[in-house]
Amino acid sequence: MTELTLGEASAKTSARLEWMLVGLGILALLVAPFLIYPIFLMKMLCFALFACAFNLLLGYTGLLSFGHATFFGGAAYFTAHAVKVWGWPPEAGILLGMAGAALLGLVMGFFAIRRQGIYFAMITLALSQMFFFFCVQSPFTQGEDGIQGVPRGMLLGVLDLNVSLNMYYFVLAVFLIGVFAIWRIVNSPFGMILRSIRENENRAISLGYSVANYKLGAFVMSAALAGLAGSLKAIVFQFATLTDVTWQMSGEVILMTLLGGIGTMVGPIIGASLVIGLENTLATSGFPVTIATGLIFMVCVLIFRRGIVGEFYARIFKRAGKD
């Protein structure tokens, strides 16, 4: 996926642009619940965080995981179980979900990084399907029904999450922290090494980096953050079901990232919002969602590989280049 990422000089300009967008975006998100149905917004934010976490791996390390539903859905199950059955407070449940996802990421990553490229994608897909079968059979997930009626509870014992706006701002805060964490990771020395692996793995090896460890590290971080998104979703919607661990979910997060722009900070957020918005619209129209997502996939791959944000930058730099 290297050929579509931005050069270093343009990355600087893009960073400034992204800051402006980020400021506007945060402002919009602060007032949004007064204009738009909060549940929809929270769903959007959860998936946006999921897509950003996924992009940490695909966009900045160059690894295409086809198994991220495992972390998203798995964390949702862990959180739902801890909060509902063990009576844990929501923040503890979310942390547990994250830790569980990180552990799953460690296991899956350990196997998957043994192969590269297309095999990596197939291995993550297969292992994720294995986790799906485990969820189908294991009693704690309650099979087809899923874990329902998860109480939202009191955040830190003081903030009642049953109040819609409280829940919303909590989700927004977690979302911002998560995205900030990803931004920090990407722009740290660690992140630079990840990028060098993406650009030229063999050269990174010859420079003395233990590429396998870096890949595994990126995989675990991406898994933990995807888990954070899944845990959050479980608290918001008060259930965890098999839908979130299916391969279709893994595909969906790829689509969000691809549509928004692989390897950009804002892209996955925009992509996720569009995909979720589209699904909401289609849900009432009767047009099958899978056909729509499939078509977007094909169109994106054929003529729109930079994604919305990537295409936007490309236009701007083209114009800048002419002047």
Partner: peptide, 20 residues
Amino acid sequence: LDPLYGLLFTFGLALVLEGI
């Protein structure tokens, strides 16, 4: 292009076929 794009394209194709 990167072979991963072939995978993603055929994934989309699979979704469409199955959806229809």
